[in-house]
Design a protein around this nucleic acid. Sequence first.
DNA 1: CGCCACCTTGACAACTTTCAAGCCTAGTGG
DNA 2: CCACTAGGCTTGAAAGTTGTCAAGGTGGCG
Lengths: 208, 208
Amino acid sequence: MSLIQPHNPAAGAERHYGDRQEFMTESTPANMHFHVVSGGARLFKSLPDGRRQIIGFASRGDVLPAYPCTHYHYSAEAMHTLRVACVPAPYLRHLHETSPGACAASLHTARQLLIGLHGRLLMLGRQTARERLAAFLIGQGTRMGQDALWPVDPAISRADMADFLGLTTETVSRLLSAFHREKLISRQRRAIHILDLDRLRAIVAHSG
Amino acid sequence: MSLIQPHNPAAGAERHYGDRQEFMTESTPANMHFHVVSGGARLFKSLPDGRRQIIGFASRGDVLPAYPCTHYHYSAEAMHTLRVACVPAPYLRHLHETSPGACAASLHTARQLLIGLHGRLLMLGRQTARERLAAFLIGQGTRMGQDALWPVDPAISRADMADFLGLTTETVSRLLSAFHREKLISRQRRAIHILDLDRLRAIVAHSG
DNA sequence: CGCCACCTTGACAACTTTCAAGCCTAGTGG
DNA sequence: CCACTAGGCTTGAAAGTTGTCAAGGTGGCG
């Protein structure tokens, strides 16, 4: 769910934010990129009546760019605590104009993001709640690479999963209970571990 | 719905495709970019059981890039007739590595696509069928700029709208009838015209 | 003129949400 | 140290939106 892979840590003031503090607001003038130093952030868009869709999660090393350079086109808020470095937009622009390597790197990450979003379009448009949650759990489990299975990031609440998957917290909760009954996952405290990756994969691909 | 804005028309063989011919297939080795010379194309991803989600439509000037340079990550098929110029992947890569301007242009279009996709995530995840269709009609009406209102591209069928919006053709058809009854649109032949843009906008933003 | 693909409409079913309790857990203050 | 409280999580029952299945309608093209 990263937004843009690491650039050189750019010079710029560092800022701290507390739990649920919004540090980037949609439709607000944009002149800063934010480079996540530590902690995590939710990136989201919302409708006037409060419905919200999480676009992605950002963590250490990700850059939240202010692309159109006029306004941010989504909002971002801290999960637990967050430290970001502010990168002036002109700085990165200048870097892109002068260094082909930097520009190519940004292009590469933008394209990776596009691929991910195309997949999520398919998920939100055509998959059932059960399939979406299974896909999310797999994504969380393999987020550090295919070698090991990680538990779901404990900073991600039911409400976050729901906003990410286009569901309600109740539906997420019910499905997690179902997966637990079916021994696909284990739940201890808030931690969710994958027990049967293959069967989860079958749920996503096929309509199981 | 364009995929990538015009580059210099690159050298490369030109190809013709007939209605519904698939010229780019997901998970297939990728070594060519396609530059649309004329006609239109549907870009989509599908699930093993046939459910499909249209990612976007491509028309004259758009470039369908083979980014990860190993496999295409979505499929594309001709709408009616299509002419594309094939651009060898190494050609564009070389251009990006040597010309900062070309790379910056690609980055810019990739970012525009990202912004569009973020909006569609919100649409598919959180908006009702009625809101989605209204948003689609507005997008079609203003696709050539804010000055004039265009009818929906007649090459786009009910099934296309459904696959784009994550709905069924029946739902699309019922909603179009409802919009017609409410005098929001007119339907003559296959052509759909917007009659009341403001009210359509109200449906999208607010939950009307 | 007739066929075929696409579109429309209806009735019904299914999935997901909504509304409403109740529960658990962690953090707080007595 | 323990009870209390607040927020998040779980579960149930009912409602609503959208999908499914099925039957016509319509227009274009051979």
